[in-house]
Write a protein that binds this DNA or RNA. Sequence first.
DNA 1: GCATTTACTCAACGATCGTGTAAATATTTT
DNA 2: AAAATATTTACACGATCGTTGAGTAAATGC
Lengths: 216, 216
Amino acid sequence: MNAPDTGPTTRDRILNAAERLFAQRGYYGVTIRQITREAGVDVALASYYFGPKADLFRAVLERRAEELHGAILASIDAVEKRAGDRPPGVESLIRAFAQPSIDRLVRGGEGWRDYIHMMAGLYSSQQSEFLVAMNDMYTPAMRRVMELIRLSIPTASERSVTLSFYMLLTAVISIYSETVGLERLSNGTIHPTDFDAILDHLAPFFAAGFHRMASV
Amino acid sequence: MNAPDTGPTTRDRILNAAERLFAQRGYYGVTIRQITREAGVDVALASYYFGPKADLFRAVLERRAEELHGAILASIDAVEKRAGDRPPGVESLIRAFAQPSIDRLVRGGEGWRDYIHMMAGLYSSQQSEFLVAMNDMYTPAMRRVMELIRLSIPTASERSVTLSFYMLLTAVISIYSETVGLERLSNGTIHPTDFDAILDHLAPFFAAGFHRMASV
DNA sequence: GCATTTACTCAACGATCGTGTAAATATTTT
DNA sequence: AAAATATTTACACGATCGTTGAGTAAATGC
């Protein structure tokens, strides 16, 4: 068994091509025909496997969601365990939240990079149908981080932690998208792909913000 | 002179419609025919006034850039003057940077709201041609804020201030886009349109971050 | 008044879109 | 091996896309 197979399934070839193109140009910027052309399969196969275009988009979103979300939860659990019976520090929680995505972005291969770019592009779009779907996939992990931050800074109100976390979230996601913004802002001295260095800055930076708003 | 005219110019009607639609669905999500239909004018007039679609998009971007950028610079100058000969505080610089956009977003009418939504959507997109163009329009103001922050926190390295400012920038822009993210994160208790309240949180939050990274 | 420029309409171009359908081929199940 | 199912191909559909060019009406310059 396990004959030398010819690579990914047709279904997966379509998903891979869709992932890459949606990441580059967004939902409306990509046509079914471009996707199937890139995948090297007949146009009709997209409808055959996924139905309408919106369902294909959702399928791409869902394919890797469970693994990434699970990894984030596991990462948070690990930080919790390491902290013993005290609540873990805010900075380590931020790292735990962002690290799994960065790992996959940097070391997970093309597919993961495309997936994360695609999510980052989606998050700041106005297409609330998809946005809400994606948000829901990662809600438990986000809720968990906010809970633990509240335990770590008991004097901070729920509202304050939510607002602060939202700002953290938007910054993290913008970094995932690797836009040219950072490169231009720094005159080319900081590269948007230096994720590890960026996270080393981001974590204490935002942790300070959370603590500053402890009494609000 | 100045006969009772029939409202905006045809040119401006097209720009207004384009602004509104691009803000909602992005560059690829909008067709010239939708724009001209919304504007109530013939399809050919889009090409007549602006040439290809990309040039129309750029025209929308440019129309309000000078005014907003000027207002941001003026806002920074005002804070500087108020501070006398000492460098202004980081928190007031953050407010000065964000306030003009928020003013127009909340109190500038539909056109300004659409324009700012459109910019926010563009910023997190991967369409670097437009993104770079927009970035350049607002570079002087961003440079100025970073300079003044460095004067306010002389021990912070240029690299540190650039990274911190980038995170501020991404958060501010995400807030401008009024996505459903914040509303869902807070279970509906925080409304994405409460810009003044959000800015009251954001300013001290990020100021603390800047100061925390003073020695890096 | 006439000529030229400007503003706009109308119709059409070739290209591409998303999505079906019917037939052909490949694979699996019986 | 036969039957049933799954996959793939080829093709066509009506619709819409961005853009152009020819023609009309109004404003402007002389």
